[in-house]
Design a binder for these strands. Structure first.
Length: 485
RNA sequence: GUCCCUAUCGUCUAGUGGACUAGGACGUGGCCCUUUCAAGGCCAAGACACGGGUUCGAAUCCCGUUAGGGGCACCA
Protein backbone atom coordinates (compact mmCIF):
# COMPACT_ATOMS: atom_id res chain seq x y z
CA UNK A 1 0.00 0.00 0.00
CA UNK A 2 1.80 3.10 -1.20
CA UNK A 3 1.68 6.04 1.17
CA UNK A 4 1.30 8.62 -1.54
CA UNK A 5 -1.08 8.56 -4.47
CA UNK A 6 -1.27 11.64 -6.65
CA UNK A 7 -2.84 12.32 -9.99
CA UNK A 8 -2.67 14.59 -12.98
CA UNK A 9 -6.17 15.08 -14.31
CA UNK A 10 -6.22 17.14 -17.47
CA UNK A 11 -9.16 17.60 -19.74
CA UNK A 12 -8.28 16.63 -23.30
CA UNK A 13 -8.56 20.05 -24.83
CA UNK A 14 -5.27 20.15 -26.69
CA UNK A 15 -1.54 20.19 -26.15
CA UNK A 16 -0.78 21.02 -22.53
CA UNK A 17 1.25 24.14 -21.98
CA UNK A 18 4.18 24.67 -19.66
CA UNK A 19 2.02 25.67 -16.73
CA UNK A 20 -0.08 22.51 -16.81
CA UNK A 21 2.94 20.36 -17.31
CA UNK A 22 4.68 21.96 -14.39
CA UNK A 23 1.73 20.93 -12.23
CA UNK A 24 2.00 17.39 -13.56
CA UNK A 25 5.70 17.47 -12.85
CA UNK A 26 5.24 18.52 -9.23
CA UNK A 27 2.77 15.70 -8.70
CA UNK A 28 5.06 13.19 -10.33
CA UNK A 29 8.08 14.34 -8.35
CA UNK A 30 6.12 14.01 -5.14
CA UNK A 31 4.98 10.52 -6.06
CA UNK A 32 8.49 9.40 -6.92
CA UNK A 33 9.96 11.09 -3.87
CA UNK A 34 7.71 8.92 -1.74
CA UNK A 35 7.78 5.77 -3.81
CA UNK A 36 4.12 6.45 -4.37
CA UNK A 37 1.88 6.25 -7.40
CA UNK A 38 1.28 8.80 -10.11
CA UNK A 39 -2.05 8.47 -11.85
CA UNK A 40 -3.23 9.91 -15.12
CA UNK A 41 -6.94 10.54 -15.28
CA UNK A 42 -8.89 12.13 -18.09
CA UNK A 43 -11.48 14.71 -17.18
CA UNK A 44 -13.66 14.45 -20.23
CA UNK A 45 -17.03 15.30 -18.78
CA UNK A 46 -17.58 18.20 -21.09
CA UNK A 47 -18.32 16.84 -24.50
CA UNK A 48 -18.43 20.28 -26.03
CA UNK A 49 -14.79 21.05 -25.31
CA UNK A 50 -13.32 17.79 -26.43
CA UNK A 51 -10.44 17.93 -28.91
CA UNK A 52 -9.98 14.86 -31.04
CA UNK A 53 -6.40 13.88 -30.26
CA UNK A 54 -6.19 15.88 -27.07
CA UNK A 55 -5.29 12.89 -24.95
CA UNK A 56 -2.55 11.76 -27.30
CA UNK A 57 -0.96 15.19 -27.17
CA UNK A 58 -1.01 15.11 -23.40
CA UNK A 59 0.48 11.66 -23.18
CA UNK A 60 3.17 12.51 -25.71
CA UNK A 61 4.17 15.58 -23.72
CA UNK A 62 4.40 13.63 -20.49
CA UNK A 63 6.40 10.90 -22.15
CA UNK A 64 8.81 13.38 -23.66
CA UNK A 65 9.50 14.72 -20.19
CA UNK A 66 9.89 11.23 -18.82
CA UNK A 67 6.89 11.60 -16.57
CA UNK A 68 5.54 8.09 -16.64
CA UNK A 69 2.28 7.16 -14.98
CA UNK A 70 1.51 4.06 -12.94
CA UNK A 71 -2.18 3.97 -13.70
CA UNK A 72 -3.99 5.59 -16.58
CA UNK A 73 -6.42 5.35 -19.46
CA UNK A 74 -4.02 3.43 -21.69
CA UNK A 75 -2.55 1.05 -19.14
CA UNK A 76 -5.42 0.66 -16.74
CA UNK A 77 -5.00 0.01 -13.03
CA UNK A 78 -6.89 -1.17 -10.00
CA UNK A 79 -8.92 2.01 -9.68
CA UNK A 80 -10.21 2.37 -13.22
CA UNK A 81 -11.68 3.30 -15.50
CA UNK A 82 -9.53 6.39 -15.91
CA UNK A 83 -11.77 8.19 -18.35
CA UNK A 84 -14.40 10.08 -16.43
CA UNK A 85 -16.78 9.61 -19.32
CA UNK A 86 -16.68 5.88 -18.56
CA UNK A 87 -17.58 6.37 -14.92
CA UNK A 88 -21.02 7.88 -15.38
CA UNK A 89 -22.93 5.24 -13.37
CA UNK A 90 -20.58 5.84 -10.46
CA UNK A 91 -21.29 9.57 -10.36
CA UNK A 92 -25.01 8.97 -10.65
CA UNK A 93 -24.96 6.62 -7.73
CA UNK A 94 -23.12 9.08 -5.52
CA UNK A 95 -25.19 12.03 -6.62
CA UNK A 96 -28.36 10.16 -5.80
CA UNK A 97 -26.91 9.23 -2.45
CA UNK A 98 -26.37 12.87 -1.70
CA UNK A 99 -29.96 13.67 -2.64
CA UNK A 100 -31.23 10.93 -0.35
CA UNK A 101 -29.17 12.30 2.49
CA UNK A 102 -30.63 15.73 1.88
CA UNK A 103 -27.21 17.15 1.06
CA UNK A 104 -28.18 17.78 -2.54
CA UNK A 105 -31.42 18.37 -4.40
CA UNK A 106 -32.96 18.23 -7.82
CA UNK A 107 -33.31 21.56 -9.55
CA UNK A 108 -35.76 21.88 -12.43
CA UNK A 109 -34.87 25.38 -13.51
CA UNK A 110 -34.39 25.86 -17.23
CA UNK A 111 -31.57 27.82 -18.77
CA UNK A 112 -34.03 30.56 -19.61
CA UNK A 113 -35.21 30.86 -16.04
CA UNK A 114 -31.64 30.98 -14.83
CA UNK A 115 -30.66 33.59 -17.36
CA UNK A 116 -33.59 35.75 -16.38
CA UNK A 117 -32.77 35.35 -12.72
CA UNK A 118 -29.19 36.47 -13.32
CA UNK A 119 -30.30 39.42 -15.39
CA UNK A 120 -32.51 40.59 -12.57
CA UNK A 121 -29.76 40.14 -10.02
CA UNK A 122 -27.41 42.14 -12.15
CA UNK A 123 -29.97 44.87 -12.62
CA UNK A 124 -30.20 45.14 -8.86
CA UNK A 125 -26.42 45.16 -8.57
CA UNK A 126 -26.36 41.90 -6.68
CA UNK A 127 -23.84 39.15 -7.22
CA UNK A 128 -25.17 36.56 -9.64
CA UNK A 129 -25.81 33.23 -8.03
CA UNK A 130 -28.50 30.59 -7.91
CA UNK A 131 -31.31 31.78 -5.64
CA UNK A 132 -32.06 28.24 -4.45
CA UNK A 133 -35.69 28.37 -5.48
CA UNK A 134 -35.78 24.63 -6.16
CA UNK A 135 -34.17 23.85 -2.84
CA UNK A 136 -37.29 25.03 -1.01
CA UNK A 137 -39.83 23.30 -3.23
CA UNK A 138 -42.64 21.67 -1.27
CA UNK A 139 -43.14 17.94 -1.68
CA UNK A 140 -46.21 18.43 -3.91
CA UNK A 141 -44.45 20.89 -6.17
CA UNK A 142 -41.54 18.55 -6.51
CA UNK A 143 -43.86 15.62 -7.27
CA UNK A 144 -45.67 17.64 -9.88
CA UNK A 145 -42.47 18.52 -11.71
CA UNK A 146 -41.40 14.91 -11.61
CA UNK A 147 -44.70 13.76 -13.08
CA UNK A 148 -44.27 16.28 -15.87
CA UNK A 149 -41.02 14.53 -16.61
CA UNK A 150 -39.01 17.71 -16.43
CA UNK A 151 -35.28 17.63 -16.89
CA UNK A 152 -33.33 18.38 -13.79
CA UNK A 153 -29.83 18.91 -12.48
CA UNK A 154 -28.61 17.99 -9.05
CA UNK A 155 -27.32 20.82 -6.92
CA UNK A 156 -25.34 20.75 -3.74
CA UNK A 157 -27.28 22.07 -0.75
CA UNK A 158 -24.62 24.33 0.68
CA UNK A 159 -24.95 24.97 4.43
CA UNK A 160 -26.64 28.32 4.98
CA UNK A 161 -24.51 29.29 7.92
CA UNK A 162 -21.04 28.82 9.28
CA UNK A 163 -17.82 28.79 7.40
CA UNK A 164 -15.47 26.29 5.86
CA UNK A 165 -11.78 26.19 6.51
CA UNK A 166 -9.66 25.05 3.63
CA UNK A 167 -6.32 23.57 4.40
CA UNK A 168 -3.78 24.23 1.70
CA UNK A 169 -0.16 23.21 2.08
CA UNK A 170 0.98 25.95 -0.23
CA UNK A 171 -1.23 28.83 0.81
CA UNK A 172 -1.96 27.94 4.39
CA UNK A 173 -5.47 27.95 5.83
CA UNK A 174 -8.19 29.83 4.04
CA UNK A 175 -11.55 30.35 5.73
CA UNK A 176 -14.59 31.06 3.62
CA UNK A 177 -18.07 31.92 4.88
CA UNK A 178 -20.53 29.36 3.56
CA UNK A 179 -23.01 32.00 2.50
CA UNK A 180 -20.59 33.05 -0.22
CA UNK A 181 -20.74 29.62 -1.81
CA UNK A 182 -23.25 28.92 -4.54
CA UNK A 183 -25.45 25.82 -4.71
CA UNK A 184 -23.19 24.29 -7.28
CA UNK A 185 -24.51 21.96 -9.96
CA UNK A 186 -23.17 18.46 -9.37
CA UNK A 187 -24.98 16.55 -12.10
CA UNK A 188 -25.89 18.09 -15.41
CA UNK A 189 -29.18 17.33 -17.10
CA UNK A 190 -27.36 15.27 -19.73
CA UNK A 191 -26.37 12.78 -17.04
CA UNK A 192 -22.76 13.92 -16.93
CA UNK A 193 -21.28 15.09 -13.66
CA UNK A 194 -19.68 18.49 -13.36
CA UNK A 195 -16.06 18.74 -12.43
CA UNK A 196 -17.01 19.48 -8.85
CA UNK A 197 -18.68 16.12 -8.31
CA UNK A 198 -16.41 14.02 -10.47
CA UNK A 199 -13.19 15.30 -9.00
CA UNK A 200 -14.29 14.59 -5.45
CA UNK A 201 -15.76 11.17 -6.16
CA UNK A 202 -12.76 10.09 -8.21
CA UNK A 203 -10.11 11.40 -5.87
CA UNK A 204 -11.85 9.63 -3.03
CA UNK A 205 -12.40 6.38 -4.86
CA UNK A 206 -8.91 6.39 -6.26
CA UNK A 207 -7.54 7.01 -2.79
CA UNK A 208 -5.66 10.11 -3.78
CA UNK A 209 -3.63 11.45 -0.87
CA UNK A 210 -2.45 14.79 -2.26
CA UNK A 211 -4.13 17.02 -4.76
CA UNK A 212 -1.85 19.50 -6.44
CA UNK A 213 -3.63 21.52 -9.05
CA UNK A 214 -3.61 24.98 -10.59
CA UNK A 215 -4.30 28.10 -8.62
CA UNK A 216 -7.40 28.79 -10.66
CA UNK A 217 -9.19 26.08 -8.68
CA UNK A 218 -8.83 27.84 -5.41
CA UNK A 219 -12.14 29.62 -5.79
CA UNK A 220 -14.04 26.36 -6.17
CA UNK A 221 -12.05 24.73 -3.42
CA UNK A 222 -14.84 25.36 -0.84
CA UNK A 223 -17.35 23.53 -3.01
CA UNK A 224 -15.14 20.50 -3.09
CA UNK A 225 -14.59 20.45 0.64
CA UNK A 226 -18.31 20.84 1.16
CA UNK A 227 -18.90 17.82 -1.05
CA UNK A 228 -16.38 15.81 0.95
CA UNK A 229 -18.20 16.87 4.08
CA UNK A 230 -21.57 15.96 2.61
CA UNK A 231 -20.32 12.45 1.94
CA UNK A 232 -18.61 12.24 5.29
CA UNK A 233 -15.29 11.61 3.59
CA UNK A 234 -11.88 12.80 4.68
CA UNK A 235 -10.45 15.06 2.02
CA UNK A 236 -6.93 14.56 0.69
CA UNK A 237 -4.31 17.20 1.29
CA UNK A 238 -4.60 20.10 -1.10
CA UNK A 239 -2.05 22.43 -2.58
CA UNK A 240 -2.81 25.02 -5.22
CA UNK A 241 0.21 25.79 -7.36
CA UNK A 242 0.51 29.26 -8.84
CA UNK A 243 0.24 29.92 -12.54
CA UNK A 244 3.15 30.40 -14.89
CA UNK A 245 3.31 33.80 -16.52
CA UNK A 246 4.83 35.13 -19.71
CA UNK A 247 7.42 37.94 -19.71
CA UNK A 248 4.59 40.47 -19.81
CA UNK A 249 3.28 38.98 -16.55
CA UNK A 250 0.20 37.68 -18.26
CA UNK A 251 -0.73 34.06 -18.06
CA UNK A 252 1.45 32.08 -20.44
CA UNK A 253 -0.24 31.60 -23.79
CA UNK A 254 0.38 31.24 -27.50
CA UNK A 255 1.23 34.90 -27.70
CA UNK A 256 4.45 34.20 -25.85
CA UNK A 257 5.71 31.83 -28.50
CA UNK A 258 6.22 28.19 -27.79
CA UNK A 259 4.04 26.90 -25.02
CA UNK A 260 3.83 23.23 -25.81
CA UNK A 261 6.75 21.20 -24.66
CA UNK A 262 7.30 19.60 -28.04
CA UNK A 263 7.96 23.01 -29.50
CA UNK A 264 10.74 23.47 -26.99
CA UNK A 265 12.16 20.12 -27.96
CA UNK A 266 12.16 21.20 -31.60
CA UNK A 267 13.97 24.38 -30.71
CA UNK A 268 16.81 22.37 -29.30
CA UNK A 269 16.17 22.31 -25.60
CA UNK A 270 17.23 19.19 -23.71
CA UNK A 271 14.71 17.32 -21.60
CA UNK A 272 17.15 17.45 -18.71
CA UNK A 273 17.23 21.23 -18.82
CA UNK A 274 13.51 21.60 -19.35
CA UNK A 275 12.74 19.35 -16.42
CA UNK A 276 15.20 21.14 -14.17
CA UNK A 277 14.03 24.57 -15.22
CA UNK A 278 10.34 23.84 -14.89
CA UNK A 279 10.83 22.49 -11.40
CA UNK A 280 12.59 25.67 -10.40
CA UNK A 281 9.58 27.65 -11.52
CA UNK A 282 7.84 27.87 -8.19
CA UNK A 283 10.07 25.57 -6.24
CA UNK A 284 13.52 26.08 -4.80
CA UNK A 285 15.88 23.84 -2.92
CA UNK A 286 17.88 26.27 -0.83
CA UNK A 287 18.19 29.28 -3.04
CA UNK A 288 21.78 28.33 -3.86
CA UNK A 289 21.76 25.13 -5.84
CA UNK A 290 19.98 25.22 -9.18
CA UNK A 291 21.27 22.32 -11.23
CA UNK A 292 19.64 19.00 -10.47
CA UNK A 293 19.47 15.74 -12.32
CA UNK A 294 16.15 13.97 -12.53
CA UNK A 295 17.19 11.72 -9.65
CA UNK A 296 18.31 14.65 -7.52
CA UNK A 297 15.06 16.43 -8.19
CA UNK A 298 13.15 13.40 -6.98
CA UNK A 299 15.30 13.08 -3.90
CA UNK A 300 15.08 16.70 -2.90
CA UNK A 301 11.56 17.68 -3.89
CA UNK A 302 9.42 18.63 -0.94
CA UNK A 303 6.08 20.36 -0.66
CA UNK A 304 7.15 23.02 1.83
CA UNK A 305 9.34 24.77 -0.70
CA UNK A 306 6.65 25.35 -3.28
CA UNK A 307 6.09 29.05 -3.81
CA UNK A 308 2.67 30.59 -3.51
CA UNK A 309 3.16 33.41 -5.98
CA UNK A 310 3.22 33.15 -9.76
CA UNK A 311 6.51 32.89 -11.64
CA UNK A 312 7.50 34.42 -14.95
CA UNK A 313 8.84 32.01 -17.50
CA UNK A 314 12.23 33.50 -18.35
CA UNK A 315 13.67 32.12 -21.51
CA UNK A 316 17.11 33.66 -21.12
CA UNK A 317 17.64 31.67 -17.97
CA UNK A 318 16.35 28.53 -19.67
CA UNK A 319 18.89 29.17 -22.43
CA UNK A 320 21.67 29.42 -19.90
CA UNK A 321 20.62 26.23 -18.18
CA UNK A 322 20.29 24.42 -21.48
CA UNK A 323 23.85 25.45 -22.30
CA UNK A 324 24.98 24.05 -18.97
CA UNK A 325 23.42 20.73 -19.83
CA UNK A 326 24.82 20.71 -23.35
CA UNK A 327 28.31 21.21 -21.96
CA UNK A 328 27.85 18.25 -19.64
CA UNK A 329 26.91 15.86 -22.43
CA UNK A 330 29.21 13.07 -23.59
CA UNK A 331 30.50 13.84 -27.07
CA UNK A 332 28.81 10.84 -28.61
CA UNK A 333 25.55 11.73 -26.95
CA UNK A 334 25.80 15.32 -28.07
CA UNK A 335 26.52 14.25 -31.65
CA UNK A 336 23.52 11.94 -31.68
CA UNK A 337 21.27 14.75 -30.51
CA UNK A 338 22.82 17.23 -32.91
CA UNK A 339 22.45 15.13 -36.04
CA UNK A 340 18.69 15.61 -36.51
CA UNK A 341 19.13 19.37 -36.27
CA UNK A 342 21.73 19.30 -39.02
CA UNK A 343 19.56 17.12 -41.20
CA UNK A 344 16.60 19.37 -40.64
CA UNK A 345 18.66 22.34 -41.78
CA UNK A 346 19.44 20.55 -45.02
CA UNK A 347 22.96 19.63 -44.04
CA UNK A 348 23.90 16.12 -45.04
CA UNK A 349 26.19 15.13 -42.23
CA UNK A 350 26.74 11.65 -40.88
CA UNK A 351 27.22 10.67 -37.28
CA UNK A 352 31.00 10.25 -37.69
CA UNK A 353 31.46 13.79 -38.89
CA UNK A 354 29.05 15.11 -36.32
CA UNK A 355 31.13 13.46 -33.63
CA UNK A 356 34.14 15.40 -34.85
CA UNK A 357 32.21 18.62 -34.88
CA UNK A 358 30.61 18.15 -31.49
CA UNK A 359 33.61 19.04 -29.31
CA UNK A 360 34.18 22.16 -31.38
CA UNK A 361 30.69 23.51 -30.79
CA UNK A 362 29.85 22.08 -27.41
CA UNK A 363 30.62 25.15 -25.37
CA UNK A 364 29.24 27.46 -28.01
CA UNK A 365 25.69 26.16 -28.05
CA UNK A 366 22.83 27.22 -25.89
CA UNK A 367 20.33 25.41 -28.04
CA UNK A 368 20.80 22.47 -30.34
CA UNK A 369 19.21 24.30 -33.25
CA UNK A 370 22.04 26.82 -33.23
CA UNK A 371 24.33 24.23 -34.76
CA UNK A 372 23.48 24.79 -38.43
CA UNK A 373 24.67 28.38 -38.93
CA UNK A 374 27.78 27.56 -36.94
CA UNK A 375 29.02 24.79 -39.20
CA UNK A 376 27.15 25.06 -42.49
CA UNK A 377 30.27 26.30 -44.30
CA UNK A 378 31.96 22.97 -43.65
CA UNK A 379 29.46 21.22 -45.85
CA UNK A 380 29.03 23.68 -48.68
CA UNK A 381 30.79 23.01 -51.97
CA UNK A 382 31.32 26.68 -52.64
CA UNK A 383 31.19 29.35 -50.02
CA UNK A 384 30.19 32.84 -50.97
CA UNK A 385 31.18 35.97 -49.12
CA UNK A 386 32.15 39.55 -49.57
CA UNK A 387 35.87 39.64 -50.55
CA UNK A 388 36.36 42.69 -48.36
CA UNK A 389 35.95 40.52 -45.28
CA UNK A 390 39.19 38.80 -46.27
CA UNK A 391 41.09 41.84 -45.14
CA UNK A 392 42.06 41.28 -41.54
CA UNK A 393 41.55 43.65 -38.65
CA UNK A 394 43.78 46.74 -38.82
CA UNK A 395 45.36 45.41 -42.00
CA UNK A 396 45.23 46.32 -45.64
CA UNK A 397 44.66 44.04 -48.60
CA UNK A 398 48.34 43.62 -49.36
CA UNK A 399 49.18 42.58 -45.83
CA UNK A 400 46.30 40.17 -45.79
CA UNK A 401 47.45 38.69 -49.03
CA UNK A 402 50.92 38.13 -47.62
CA UNK A 403 49.54 36.52 -44.53
CA UNK A 404 47.24 34.20 -46.43
CA UNK A 405 50.03 33.17 -48.80
CA UNK A 406 52.23 32.32 -45.88
CA UNK A 407 49.48 30.32 -44.23
CA UNK A 408 48.78 28.54 -47.49
CA UNK A 409 52.38 27.54 -47.96
CA UNK A 410 52.68 26.17 -44.49
CA UNK A 411 49.49 24.18 -44.67
CA UNK A 412 50.31 22.88 -48.10
CA UNK A 413 53.54 21.46 -46.79
CA UNK A 414 52.17 19.56 -43.83
CA UNK A 415 49.83 16.85 -42.74
CA UNK A 416 46.51 17.85 -41.13
CA UNK A 417 46.68 15.07 -38.60
CA UNK A 418 48.42 16.81 -35.76
CA UNK A 419 46.52 19.83 -34.50
CA UNK A 420 49.33 20.78 -32.16
CA UNK A 421 51.86 20.97 -34.96
CA UNK A 422 49.53 22.89 -37.23
CA UNK A 423 48.93 25.51 -34.62
CA UNK A 424 52.61 25.90 -33.79
CA UNK A 425 53.59 26.27 -37.42
CA UNK A 426 50.88 28.79 -38.19
CA UNK A 427 51.54 30.76 -35.06
CA UNK A 428 55.23 31.01 -35.88
CA UNK A 429 54.46 32.19 -39.41
CA UNK A 430 52.18 34.89 -38.10
CA UNK A 431 54.79 36.12 -35.68
CA UNK A 432 57.38 36.26 -38.41
CA UNK A 433 55.13 38.59 -40.36
CA UNK A 434 54.78 40.72 -37.27
CA UNK A 435 51.09 40.01 -37.03
CA UNK A 436 49.04 39.41 -34.00
CA UNK A 437 47.49 35.96 -33.77
CA UNK A 438 44.06 37.51 -34.08
CA UNK A 439 45.07 39.09 -37.37
CA UNK A 440 46.84 36.13 -38.88
CA UNK A 441 44.29 33.54 -37.86
CA UNK A 442 41.53 35.96 -38.75
CA UNK A 443 42.59 36.15 -42.37
CA UNK A 444 42.85 32.39 -42.61
CA UNK A 445 39.50 31.97 -40.95
CA UNK A 446 37.79 34.22 -43.42
CA UNK A 447 39.40 32.57 -46.39
CA UNK A 448 38.40 29.13 -45.31
CA UNK A 449 34.92 29.79 -43.96
CA UNK A 450 33.74 33.09 -45.37
CA UNK A 451 32.88 34.05 -41.82
CA UNK A 452 34.49 36.17 -39.16
CA UNK A 453 33.16 33.92 -36.44
CA UNK A 454 33.66 30.17 -36.42
CA UNK A 455 34.50 27.37 -34.06
CA UNK A 456 38.26 27.06 -33.31
CA UNK A 457 40.19 27.29 -36.57
CA UNK A 458 42.53 24.32 -36.37
CA UNK A 459 39.67 21.97 -35.63
CA UNK A 460 37.72 23.46 -38.50
CA UNK A 461 40.64 22.91 -40.87
CA UNK A 462 40.94 19.29 -39.85
CA UNK A 463 37.31 18.60 -40.52
CA UNK A 464 37.38 20.51 -43.78
CA UNK A 465 40.38 18.47 -44.89
CA UNK A 466 43.48 19.53 -46.70
CA UNK A 467 42.06 19.43 -50.18
CA UNK A 468 39.09 21.69 -49.50
CA UNK A 469 41.17 23.95 -47.32
CA UNK A 470 43.76 24.52 -50.01
CA UNK A 471 41.10 25.08 -52.66
CA UNK A 472 39.41 27.74 -50.53
CA UNK A 473 42.70 29.42 -49.77
CA UNK A 474 43.40 29.43 -53.49
CA UNK A 475 40.09 31.10 -54.26
CA UNK A 476 40.62 33.66 -51.54
CA UNK A 477 44.11 34.43 -52.80
CA UNK A 478 42.72 35.33 -56.20
CA UNK A 479 40.16 37.63 -54.62
CA UNK A 480 42.75 39.28 -52.43
CA UNK A 481 45.08 39.84 -55.33
CA UNK A 482 42.36 41.81 -57.08
CA UNK A 483 41.76 43.83 -53.96
CA UNK A 484 45.45 44.54 -53.47
CA UNK A 485 45.93 45.96 -56.95
C1' G B 1 -19.53 44.99 -8.44
C1' U B 2 -18.37 40.90 -5.07
C1' C B 3 -15.43 36.89 -3.00
C1' C B 4 -10.61 34.88 -2.95
C1' C B 5 -5.27 34.58 -3.98
C1' U B 6 -0.49 37.11 -4.56
C1' A B 7 3.48 41.01 -3.54
C1' U B 8 12.17 40.42 -1.91
C1' C B 9 17.10 42.97 -7.38
C1' G B 10 14.66 43.43 -14.69
C1' U B 11 13.76 37.67 -14.04
C1' C B 12 13.99 32.83 -10.94
C1' U B 13 14.60 32.80 -5.85
C1' A B 14 16.98 32.25 -0.21
C1' G B 15 14.82 34.27 4.01
C1' U B 16 9.56 31.17 8.87
C1' G B 17 11.15 38.02 14.69
C1' G B 18 17.67 39.17 16.21
C1' A B 19 23.47 35.60 12.58
C1' C B 20 20.47 40.87 6.88
C1' U B 21 25.60 46.02 5.68
C1' A B 22 19.06 41.30 2.71
C1' G B 23 22.39 35.74 0.13
C1' G B 24 22.61 32.86 -4.68
C1' A B 25 21.50 32.31 -10.02
C1' C B 26 20.14 34.33 -14.99
C1' G B 27 20.62 38.77 -17.50
C1' U B 28 23.44 43.61 -17.69
C1' G B 29 28.33 46.54 -17.30
C1' G B 30 33.72 46.26 -16.54
C1' C B 31 38.32 43.58 -16.25
C1' C B 32 41.27 38.99 -17.05
C1' C B 33 42.13 34.74 -20.24
C1' U B 34 42.07 34.30 -25.56
C1' U B 35 43.08 32.90 -33.06
C1' U B 36 37.18 34.92 -33.74
C1' C B 37 32.84 33.54 -31.03
C1' A B 38 31.88 31.08 -26.86
C1' A B 39 33.22 28.86 -22.30
C1' G B 40 35.82 30.09 -17.76
C1' G B 41 37.68 33.49 -13.71
C1' C B 42 37.24 38.13 -10.96
C1' C B 43 34.61 42.68 -9.87
C1' A B 44 30.34 45.97 -10.04
C1' A B 45 25.44 48.01 -10.30
C1' G B 46 20.65 46.14 -8.80
C1' A B 47 15.14 44.45 -4.43
C1' C B 48 12.08 43.77 0.93
C1' A B 49 5.23 47.90 -3.28
C1' C B 50 3.33 51.90 0.23
C1' G B 51 1.34 53.50 5.09
C1' G B 52 0.20 52.37 9.93
C1' G B 53 0.66 49.25 14.09
C1' U B 54 2.66 44.84 17.56
C1' U B 55 7.71 44.21 19.61
C1' C B 56 13.62 45.93 23.03
C1' G B 57 13.95 44.38 17.77
C1' A B 58 10.22 43.15 11.50
C1' A B 59 11.63 41.43 4.77
C1' U B 60 9.53 38.10 8.41
C1' C B 61 3.39 38.99 12.70
C1' C B 62 -1.41 42.20 12.38
C1' C B 63 -4.45 46.07 9.85
C1' G B 64 -5.20 49.17 5.83
C1' U B 65 -3.81 51.10 0.81
C1' U B 66 -2.03 50.15 -3.97
C1' A B 67 -1.00 46.95 -7.94
C1' G B 68 -1.43 42.24 -10.38
C1' G B 69 -4.20 37.62 -10.90
C1' G B 70 -8.34 34.15 -10.39
C1' G B 71 -13.63 32.86 -9.53
C1' C B 72 -18.80 34.47 -9.49
C1' A B 73 -21.57 28.45 -15.79
C1' C B 74 -25.79 22.44 -16.61
C1' C B 75 -16.55 24.64 -18.56
C1' A B 76 -12.58 22.20 -16.79
Amino acid sequence: MPSVRVRYAPSPTGAPHIGNLRTALFNWLWARHNDGKFILRVEDTDQAREVENGLELIMASLKFLGIEWDEGPDIGGAYGPYHQSERLPIYKKYADELVERGAAYRCYCTNEELAQMRAEQEARGEPTRYDRRCRWLAAEQRAQRESEGRAYVIRLAVPLEGSTTLRDFIHGDITIPNDSVDDQVLMKSDGFPTYHLAVVVDDHLMEITHVMRGDEWISSFPKHILVYNAFGWTPPQFGHVPVVLGPDKKKLSKRHGATSITQFRDEGYLVEALLNFMTLLGWAYDGQRELFTRQELIENFTLDHIHSSPAVFDRTKLDWMNGEYIRRLEIGDLATRLLPFLTRAGIEADLETTKKIAPLVQERLKRLDEIAPLVDFLFQEKISYDPKTLVGPKMNAAESLHALRAAGEILDGMSFDDAEKMEQALRAAGEQLGLKPAQFFGVLRNAVSGKTVTPPLIGVLQILGKEKTMARIGDALVKLEKLAM
